[in-house]
């Protein structure tokens, strides 16, 4: 058979190519629901504006938090917006797991000869996240300027790396939250809670007492979504070891979340009919 000639191993190139294909199809689908697209974009902008309004109202009353100035916290705020962009744009399909499990539609992903997680996640590209990204860039640029952080290629590279590692934590957190949907019926709650964490990830971890500092660093690692990775830029003179480790920890955490997700998917597809 000719099939045997094909190499059985599917490399990165195969997956990249496939991802692009599926992504383009999804964008085409989105275009056919134009009204939804426009309203969702407005909704996204409004979410960011109101988030910023809450932030602003708070700092109107209190000039600083635990020695962190308004601009420093604003930097964290912008940074966290960038860090959650990947999870919003590329991993949005996680939100439909609990519904697909309920209706049984999830099973259709299980019959394809490609990685299940990849195939499921690649199906949706949420363009709304782009608006948030732009908003985040604006906030970050403003704070960056006010904090007089130098704008050299090295600093931009550090920013890119730290945003990427921060985003891995958010992605992994949402993967784990979504995976609960395979075991628990109607577990949208878990995702909603996990996603709410991002609103608190934008404050310095030092506001917590040691116990919760530990919990939010090692158990529910939201401190990595903005605080640790951004220390490189905001407070270059007091960079802790965890900041240096954040890329590696991010990859490890992502791998863990992927494994749990896959285990959940397999255990579900066996039971649901």
């Amino acid at each position: 058979m000719e099939k045997q000639n094909k190499s059985l191993k599917k490399g990165l190139r195969f997956y990249m190519h496939l991802y692009r294909m599926i992504l383009i199809q999804d964008l085409k689908s989105k275009m056919s629901y134009r009204a939804d697209f426009i309203i969702s974009t407005i909704g996204m902008i409004l979410t960011n504006l109101s988030g910023f309004a809450a932030f602003w109202i708070l700092f109107r009353n209190f000039p600083s938090i635990k020695g962190w100035s308004y601009h420093e916290i604003l930097f964290l705020y912008g940074f966290s917006l960038l860090a959650i962009t990947p999870v919003q744009c590329f991993f949005d399909n996680n939100w439909s797991i609990y519904r697909m499990v309920y209706t049984g539609d999830f099973i259709k992903y299980c019959f394809r000869p490609v990685n299940l997680f990849f195939y499921f996640i690649s199906e949706v590209f949420d363009i709304k996240g782009v608006g948030q990204f732009i908003f985040g860039v604006g906030v970050l640029a403003y704070a960056w300027n006010k904090l007089r952080i130098p704008c050299t290629p090295i600093y931009l590279f550090v920013l890119l790396m730290s945003v990427l590692s921060a985003s891995l934590f958010m992605i992994s957190l949402m993967n784990l939250a979504a995976a609960t949907g395979f075991w628990i019926m109607g577990s949208a709650y878990v995702m909603i809670f996990a996603f709410k964490f991002k609103d608190y990830a934008r404050y310095p971890i030092t506001i917590f007492n040691p116990v919760f500092r530990f919990i939010f660093t090692f158990i529910i690692p939201i401190a990595f979504v903005a605080y640790y990775p951004s220390l490189f830029l905001v407070r270059a003179d007091e960079v802790p070891l965890l900041t240096y480790l954040s890329p590696i920890l991010g990859i490890m955490f992502f791998y863990l979340s992927y494994k749990v997700w896959m285990k959940g998917a397999m255990s579900y597809s066996g039971t649901g009919s």
């Binding site: 009204a35 939804d36 697209f37 309203i39 969702s40 974009t41 909704g43 979410t47 109101s50």
Partner: peptide, 14 residues
């Protein structure tokens, strides 16, 4: 509107 997410998120934040 045929858009649930957008409408809902607007309501939620407002």
């Amino acid at each position: 509107t045929q858009s649930i997410w957008g409408i809902n998120v607007m309501k939620e934040v407002v």
